[in-house]
Amino acid sequence: MQTEIVIAGFGGQGVLFAGQVLAYAAMDNGKEVTWIPSYGPEMRGGTANCTVIIADEEIGSPMVRHPQALIAMNLPSLDKYESLIIEHGTLIVNTSLIERPVQRDDLHSVLIPANEIAEALGDKRMTNIVMVGALLAQEPVLPIEAIEAALQDHLPERHKKLLPLNYQALREGAEFVRKERIG
């Protein structure tokens, strides 16, 4: 069993950190995991992305052509990766910054205004964590509690005061997906 997740957005949207949170949680849950960033010149001012692979056995390639899931934080990320997601894969779209509709109809797509949700919580820096919450509600590769524990254990000391807000952001993201499903 192996799940590949690409998280992509602008530099500054917390794309790399969101991936690290998943990686920490996977590690703490006894999974094999790799986290690999794009570290090319494209990071400067352009897009940033990372690939997280969570698996039960030794991970071969840390990069894949067709990921199981994509978190698209902005339009260039959706444009770049939408066609690459595996058939019937998962797509989480940040509709706060992406106006165009999703083109593929085979995907499990979640359209979530993550910036607005984060801003309603009082801190737009929570956008990435809202997206992680939505991802895990759609693609339950790890329980939400595992992410909370990972944040608790690995968030730098100076950011610990933001823990409750992070938990809330996770829950809001997941809750949005649940409501969508019922509604």
Binding site: Q20, A23, M27, E32, V33, T34, W35, I36, P37, Y39, I59, P62, M63
Partner: peptide, 10 residues
Amino acid sequence: DGSIGQMMEP
């Protein structure tokens, strides 16, 4: 190579 240098793993 650069990918092992930049990659994070447990």
